Amino acid sequence: MSTNQLVADSIFKYVGHRELLTDCFVSCNTGEVIGILGRNGCGKSTFLKIIFGTVSCHHKFVSINGKKYDAPYKEKGLIAYLPQHDFLPGNVTVRQVIALFLDSQVEQELVKTNENIVPHLHKKVSALSGGELRYLEILLLMHSPAKFILLDEPFNALDPLFKEKIVALIQGCRASKGFIITDHDYRNIIASSDRIILVTQGVFKNIKVLSELEDLHYLPKGSLNDL
């Protein structure tokens, strides 16, 4: 299977007179999961939207397989984005939304026969619990033709069982896609990711050892003891 590469370089974003993101860089290859951590308002979600192409910034360079894109989301099969809010229509059944979202019959069948989806096929999307809906959204993105998946707070407000299922989804799909994920749930970001980036004062800090998350005051001392 071919390896794809996403590069986001020289990202500068101002909010008013404040520099939210300063010369930020990330690269992600097929098979990689990059986790981005940081406090509320530090620019994590904004960074994902800049890569996706739906938020403007002062300067950016985003390329996939060496080709520059200003708005990768406009090109089919390049990139998919999970927003923090629900994005599926609630007034159709799960079976119908699978057919609406995925063009490939093969991928549709894989989703419809997923053991966590089968019991809900005849339900309306609006009848799903928060965890069931989040799982379905992520599953659909992973069965899309997108080469790269951006996940914005995939674990937010989910119970531990669904968090485990989503970590397993990411690990199960990583052979064919690259992932950039951000969440405040640092435990599951660490469990899912090959590399961790901490956003601190608008700058990306590559975390080489997890203890740096405590040294840089993102986590209280002792937080990592039971990992």
Results as ranks from 00 to 15, higher is better:
Phe52Arg: 01
Ser211Ile: 11
Ala175His: 15
Asp9Ala: 09
Pro220Phe: 02
His85Ile: 08
Leu128Ala: 07
Tyr14Met: 10
Asp215Trp: 01
Ala191Ser: 14
Leu48Gly: 03
Pro160Val: 13
Glu164Phe: 14
Lys205Gln: 10
Ala80Asn: 01
Lys13Arg: 06
Gly130Ser: 07
Met142Glu: 05
Arg174Asn: 13
Lys49Trp: 09
Gly172Glu: 14
Ser10Thr: 14
Lys76Ile: 01
Asn40Phe: 05
Glu137Lys: 14
His184Arg: 06
Gly131Arg: 08
Met142Pro: 07
Ser2Asn: 11
His120Gln: 13
Ile181Asn: 03
Ile190Thr: 05
Ser56Tyr: 08
Asp159Thr: 13
Leu158Ser: 05
Tyr135Pro: 03
Phe148Ala: 06
Asp86Cys: 02
Lys13Ser: 00
Ala146Glu: 04
Glu212Ala: 10
Ser10Glu: 14
Glu32Phe: 07
Leu136Phe: 15
Pro83Thr: 13
Pro119Phe: 06
Gly222Asn: 07
Leu121Ser: 11
Asn91His: 14
Pro160Ala: 08
Glu75His: 12
Pro72Val: 02
Pro145Gln: 12
His120Ile: 12
Gln171Val: 03
Glu164Ser: 15
Lys74Trp: 06
Val33Glu: 00
Thr200His: 11
Gly16Lys: 10
Leu88Gly: 02
Pro154Cys: 04
Ala168Glu: 14
Asn225Gln: 11
Asn40Trp: 07
Ile51Leu: 01
Thr30Lys: 03
Tyr69Pro: 07
Ala168Arg: 15
Pro119Glu: 08
Gly172Pro: 09
Val167Gln: 08
Val26Asp: 00
Arg134Thr: 08
His58Trp: 11
Gly53Thr: 10
Leu198Ala: 07
Pro160Trp: 06
